[in-house]
Amino acid sequence: MTTTLLISDLHLHPSAHDVTEGFLHWLDSRAHGADALYILGDFFEAWIGDDLLDHVDHDPSGYAALAIRVAAALRKRADAGTAIYLMHGNRDFLLGHRFAAAAGAKLVTDPAILRFADEPVLVMHGDSLCTRDEAYMAFRSQARNPAWQEQILAMPLNDRIKLAANLRQQSGEATSNKAEDIMDVTPEEVLRTMRDHGVTTLIHGHTHRPAVHEIELDEQPARRIVLGDWQPGKGWEVEIGPDGDPVLRQFAL
């Protein structure tokens, strides 16, 4: 039996012990035997560069120790036969090939088209769909610029740790002052994206609003499946079995 699991928005953080332990248990139990696992962004709450893995003894943020432990767990699952794929989110857009290699994973582009039962399914983090949030879209364009990323990664490690903390604080303050609809997807952008990629099924995260939306695309039935964010005590997944039908599920950690 072929099984693919998709998750998103774990926001792993050194102080989020419950979520980390819950994920590691999920990886050893629920994900055991899965053919593929796709992590659709915001796996970590922040990521300041793969060279962090060299500084586990000199990292006041605690991310290095967390990343090494998580990478080892993913590598164990990959070595057992599960193909693991990582997609960038708006929090961990600096996640690189070195971490992916340590985790036995592959980085995939955002968006990506997968095929199940001969039907295409579009998967993405989802932040690019929130076009009404103009301030964020401007930051996203900057953050995905290779030249800007190179400039950030050239900064001393401690400066990057401070920058990540400042960006998290600014993001929280900005979010608290924005209308709810601005932070959600733009319906017209959803339809345009699905139409451009020739799909009737879209799976994404980012908005933390888990749901299955039945929509109409050019007079054809379509659906948008939104993964939820992981919190202490609960997680979200989409499971796709041999029949190719995605199932959104909440479960206890």
Rank of each mutant, 00 (worst) to 15 (best):
L114P: 08
A36E: 11
D42T: 13
L94W: 05
T193K: 08
L52C: 15
N166K: 12
I161T: 06
A46Q: 01
F44P: 05
T109G: 13
R132D: 15
P221W: 05
D18A: 14
Q250R: 14
V238D: 00
H208C: 06
P232L: 02
A78Y: 00
G244H: 07
M1C: 15
V212Q: 12
I84Q: 04
A135I: 10
H88S: 09
D110L: 11
R30F: 02
Y38P: 02
P60H: 13
V226E: 05
E180M: 13
V226A: 02
I203W: 07
H197E: 03
R140C: 09
T186A: 13
A164P: 05
N145D: 15
A101I: 07
T2S: 15
R192D: 13
M137H: 09
W47D: 05
I161L: 01
L6I: 04
N177I: 14
G233F: 06
E150N: 07
A83Y: 02
D243C: 07
D245M: 12
A174F: 04
I39E: 01
M124N: 10
L167W: 10
L122E: 11
D79Y: 01
I39L: 14
R91P: 03
H208T: 11
D245I: 14
I84N: 04
D28F: 09
G241L: 13
L74P: 05
N158H: 12
D51E: 11
F99R: 06
D50P: 02
F43K: 07
G198W: 04
Q220S: 15
E45P: 01
A179L: 11
D28L: 11
I84V: 12
D196L: 09
G96M: 01
T186F: 10
P120V: 08
V238W: 03
L202Y: 09
I7K: 09
G104H: 06
T201R: 07
M137F: 09
A83D: 02
K162D: 06
I113F: 04
K162C: 05
I182L: 08
L27S: 02
R223D: 06
D42Y: 12
